[in-house]
Amino acid sequence: MSDEQEISNVNSNSQTDEYITFVIAGQLFGVPVLKVQDVLSPQRVTPIPLAPPEIAGSLNLRGRIVTAIDVRLRLGLNGRDEGDEGMSIVVEHDSELYSLMVDSVGEVLQLKASHFERNPPTLDQKFREYSDGIYRLDDKLLVVLDVTRLLDYGREVAA
């Protein structure tokens, strides 16, 4: 992983990457805009009994079944307050669609690779695991969410 990061750092030093930003529990996050298929307003979600708690259920997105993941729970945070419906970002992983439930979705930012930094080692273990690194923005910090790791349940089971 770290190797890959270094390479991407070298390559992208001079260029900018586009990220779609969202907020979970007051923290700003971002995922590469190219990974995002859709941004959804609250949907009718069918809960899946016996599934891990962070799996909110599945929903119908234009005829495709999308698995909804509550990112808050996945990150080990508290669930959203009742009545707070939040929004969702749909990403594709292993040719399956997942809807990441977040608090709110912000704008698309162009971020300079030179502002990218690795995770500080003191970061919460879960954050470290699912984060690619941090962007230093002018007024705040943006955590780059690693969608692949976030959704890679198989690896977790294997480990």
Partner: peptide, 21 residues
């Protein structure tokens, strides 16, 4: 979804006529 494959009680999912999963 692969995440749910180990739940043996389900053989799949589907979308009903009213659009619900």
């Amino acid at each position: 979804a692969p995440i749910l494959r180990d739940i043996q009680l389900f053989s799949g999912n589907t979308i009903l006529g009213d659009g619900a999963v």
